[in-house]
């Protein structure tokens, strides 16, 4: 009995230590990326703009179709639920307030973050994991090319630029989707709907959403890179760590979202 307890405690301790080590690794990666971005050129090893551009295309432009499709659907869903709920009080006309605020402050950044974690975060973990197994990361090191500068920094910059941009796009598309349904269902014209939105949504609401999306971009990148770097055991290991990366990134996004909302609404 005592043996089992001490064994479980030991396992718990090891897991906690590994978790702390991963967080520490993430912090080191972030600091190194910032340093490479700032002083890479002075060291003769600049962060390549072409690689940043490639990552921006992968994170942002290539994700536009899926983000658009999901956003228009969620916008309409919010309008449907909003009208249904407010109908209880006969206040359907007030649906624009709920939709406008919740999209810009909550649903836009959250849905974009979750989509990018599933789409780009997983591919980042798989790419780095596969490169590690194929000794491509070792090859970079022995060539004198820092893997953080070459692989992590462009991905991080791409994510920090494109997740907020995609969030803005998702906000816009969700509001259009919701507006289309509201105008059909309640007979409100699109012009009146837009006027109503511009009165309700203030700059702070948009900045609240964008602030969160920057944090989500950072989390998705670091979780993807850390899990990719920890891959062991061939293709099976890549699959395992890719799944872990998606689960951890989405969990981190949701928890961060709650903490961010709690702090900024105090």
């Amino acid at each position: 009995m005592t043996d089992r307890v001490s064994h479980n405690l030991e396992k718990l301790g090891r897991a906690a230590a590994a978790g702390v080590a991963e967080v520490g690794f993430g912090a080191v990666l972030f600091v190194q990326s910032v340093v490479w971005t700032l002083v890479g050129s002075k060291r003769g090893q600049p962060v390549r703009l072409s690689m940043v551009f490639e990552r921006c295309m992968e994170v942002g432009i290539a994700a536009i179709p899926i983000v658009t499709m999901m956003s228009v659907t969620i916008g309409m869903m919010l309008a449907i639920q909003g009208i249904y709920t407010l109908a209880t009080f006969g206040a359907e006309q007030q649906v624009t307030i709920g939709v406008g605020i919740s999209v810009v402050r909550e649903f836009g950044p959250l849905i974009t973050g979750i989509l990018i974690a599933g789409r780009t975060g997983s591919s980042l973990a798989a790419r780095i994991g596969t490169m590690r197994i194929n000794q491509e990361v070792d090859a970079l090191e022995v060539m004198g090319v820092d893997p953080v500068r070459f692989l992590v920094t462009p991905a991080l910059i791409g994510m920090l630029v494109m997740v907020p941009v995609l969030t803005l796009w998702a906000d816009l598309v969700m509001l259009i989707g919701a507006g289309w349904y509201i105008s059909v269902e309640l007979g409100i014209s699109m012009g009146a709907y837009i006027d109503s939105l511009t009165e309700i949504i203030v700059v702070d609401d948009v900045l609240h959403g964008l602030g969160k999306s920057v944090l989500f971009g950072l989390l998705i990148t670091l979780v993807g890179v850390i899990n990719g770097a920890l891959v062991e055991g061939g293709a099976e290991g890549v699959g395992r760590m890719t799944t872990r990366s998606v689960v951890l990134a989405i969990s981190a996004i949701i928890v961060t979202d709650m903490i961010f909302a709690f702090i900024t609404t105090r």
Binding site: T130, M131, N134, Q135, E136, D138, A139, V142, M143
Partner: peptide
Amino acid sequence: GVAFQGGALFT
């Protein structure tokens, strides 16, 4: 220079 066993070419 290093020539790795599997090549380690960037895919």
